[in-house]
Amino acid sequence: MTELRRWVRALSKHVALIVVAVLMIYPLLWMVASSLRPNDEIFTSPGLLIDTFDFRHYPDGWNALARPFSTYLLNSAIVVAGSVVGNLISCSLAAYAFARLQFSAKRIAFVIMLIAIMLPVHVLIIPQYVLYAQIGWINTFLPLIVPKFLATDAFFIFLMVQFIRGIPVELDEAARIDGAGHARIYLQIMLPLMIPALATTAIFTFIWTWNDFFSQLIFVTKPDLYTVPVALRSLIDAQSQSDFGALFAMSVISLVPVFLVFLFGQRLLLRGIATTGGK
């Protein structure tokens, strides 16, 4: 009896999860289906069944612009790699200071940090462009990467602060009694214990940077340096005919790295408990 009840319960849980999963995965399947349809069927078919397979979109989209699509994938990869490394280093440093150090003007600094992410990008982009143009950074990846090394994504500082606060302060104190300075506490205690937060930061930075359109559009105008989102938008135009099949095909391709990173990054989220011994 209890066996049956447990079984029913597990089943209903899985049914619920599967229903949600279908809602989640449907768009991806539809995107794949659309990338294999003739152009004029895309906008009339919300379903997944394909009447005529059309593999043309993949080679077409790959070669649609001045360079093969691999160029844009590589450009995005460079920007993303730089951003991830930058955010991990700079945000964890700042987060340690905010969470564990006592210093003057800490409250003001914390408030300024949060306020800095409250202005919409659209009123900041022009002064930023002027600034970067002045130091010759336009048409390089520097405006997209360097700010990450300077902890401008306060989002992640705040995230890490919250995580560090979840780490018992006795651990630091024990280390300090052993003669460890802040550098050692940060490197040897905080970083290993923060792996879930670091993995979250890495995954989010990856995905947001990979999908970010506006700043990449504005700061990089040379087509050879276009990133994936900018290249994708260059495939469509509102007033003339666009190659939506190619857009969908290249969208699918550009999702592959993101999905792989997420699958891999997940393991890191799990490794978080492994190294802390499931504390």
Binding site: I126, T221, S234
Partner: peptide, 25 residues
Amino acid sequence: VEPQYADWNGYWDRLATTTAAGDMP
């Protein structure tokens, strides 16, 4: 000749920005 191309919306956003910075094509 160095080309720059974008979709309609991106084109005008970029043109306004570069013009404001004295960097018009």
